[in-house]
C-alpha cells in the first residue's frame, strides 16, 4: 500500500510534464493538421537551454526556466515561419518529410553543440527528500508538478476565457469561416506552433534538472508525446491531459510492480490496447474542445 502511494505520487509528477508535452503536440495537430516530428527535439532544446543558462551563464534557476520556455516558443515560431508557412498548400507527405528532416537537424545540432556526454543541471532544491508518512518526494519534483499544473491551467484559461483563445478554437474548427470573421489564420498557425513548442520546451526545462540532459533525450520523448496524443484522441486537448497522466501512472506502476527495464514499454503496450479497443482515444470525440 505504501509503495502504491509512492508510485502514485511519482506518476503524478511524471504525468504533469507528459500532459504538457501531449497538449502541445495535439494542439499543433488540431489547428494545423501537421504531424510535428520536432516536438521531442523542442523538449530536448528546453532542457539544454536550462543547462546553458544555469550552468554556463550562471543565470537564476527560475528565470532560466522561463527563458527556456520562451526560447522554445521562439524556435517553434521560426520553424513555422521558415518551414511550414511556405508549405501551406503542400500535401501531408511533404510536410511530414520536412518535419522529420527538421527533427534530425535539431538533434544533430544538439550533439554537435553540446557533445554526446550527458549533462547535469543543478537546481536550488535540497537533495534530501521530503518525507510525509510513508511517502518521500524530492522537493524539486513537487516544484515540477506545481509548475506543470500552473502551465496547464494558464493554457486552459488562455484558450477558454480570452478573445485570442476563442479565435484559436474557432480556427481549430473551421479555418475558412474564422478567416471570414477577421481572424488572421496565418498568425494563429504561428502562435499555435509557438505555444505548442513552448509547452514542449517547458516540459524539457522542468525535467532537465530531474533527469540528465543528453542529445538523444528527445527521441523517446517524441515517441511518448505521440503515444499521449493517441491515448487522448488526435486533436483532443482534455484528452491529451488525461493521456499524459495515464502514461505517467502506467509507466510508474508498470516499472514499480512488473519490471523497471520495461518501464518505457508499458506506455506503448497501453497504446496498442487503446488502438485495438478504442481507436478514437480514451475521451469521446464529441467532448472535444476544438
Amino acid at each position: 500500500m505504501d509503495q502504491a502511494l509512492q508510485h502514485l505520487v511519482n506518476g503524478t509528477v511524471l504525468g504533469g510534464t507528459y500532459a504538457l508535452l501531449g497538449i502541445g503536440l495535439t494542439l499543433i495537430f488540431g489547428v494545423m493538421r501537421v504531424v510535428n516530428f520536432t516536438h521531442g527535439e523542442l523538449y530536448a532544446f528546453g532542457a539544454y537551454m536550462v543547462y546553458a543558462l544555469v550552468s554556463l551563464l550562471g543565470i537564476n534557476f527560475y528565470l532560466s526556466l522561463l527563458l527556456a520556455a520562451l526560447l522554445g516558443a521562439a524556435l517553434g515560431a521560426a520553424i513555422e515561419l521558415l518551414l511550414l508557412r511556405p508549405l501551406r498548400r503542400a500535401d501531408i507527405d511533404s510536410v511530414m518529410l520536412v518535419m522529420i528532416g527538421a527533427a534530425l537537424v535539431l538533434q544533430n545540432a544538439e550533439m554537435w553543440g553540446w557533445g554526446g556526454v550527458a549533462k547535469l543541471v543543478p537546481s536550488p532544491f535540497a537533495g534530501t527528500p521530503l518525507v510525509v508518512g510513508p511517502i518521500s518526494v524530492m522537493p524539486l519534483r513537487i516544484f515540477v508538478l506545481l509548475v506543470a499544473c500552473a502551465l496547464l491551467l494558464g493554457f486552459w484559461l488562455l484558450l477558454d476565457r480570452t478573445r485570442a483563445g476563442t479565435a484559436m478554437r474557432a480556427t481549430f474548427q473551421d479555418a475558412e469561416a474564422a478567416a471570414l470573421m477577421g481572424v488572421r489564420v496565418g498568425w494563429v498557425n504561428t502562435a499555435t506552433f509557438a505555444i505548442g513548442s513552448g509547452l514542449a520546451a517547458a516540459a524539457g526545462a522542468l525535467l532537465g534538472p530531474v533527469f540528465m540532459v543528453s542529445p538523444t533525450m528527445g527521441d523517446l520523448v517524441g515517441l511518448k508525446a505521440f503515444a499521449i496524443v493517441i491515448l487522448g484522441g488526435l486533436g483532443n486537448l482534455p484528452g491529451a491531459a488525461i493521456g499524459g497522466f495515464a502514461l505517467g501512472y502506467i509507466e510508474e506502476f508498470g516499472g514499480g510492480y512488473v519490471s523497471t527495464e520495461y518501464r518505457d514499454a508499458f506506455g506503448f503496450l497501453l497504446i496498442i490496447l487503446v488502438l485495438a479497443i478504442r481507436p478514437q482515444g480514451l475521451v469521446a470525440p464529441r467532448e472535444r474542445v476544438g
Binding site: T166, R169, A170, Q173, D174, E176, A177, A178, L180, R288, V289, G290
Partner: peptide
C-alpha cells in the same frame, strides 16, 4: 460581411 454556404457555425463554440 460574408455569411457562407452551409452555415459554417463553429460547432464546438
Amino acid at each position: 460581411a460574408h455569411c457562407p454556404e452551409g452555415r459554417r457555425v463553429f460547432p464546438h463554440l
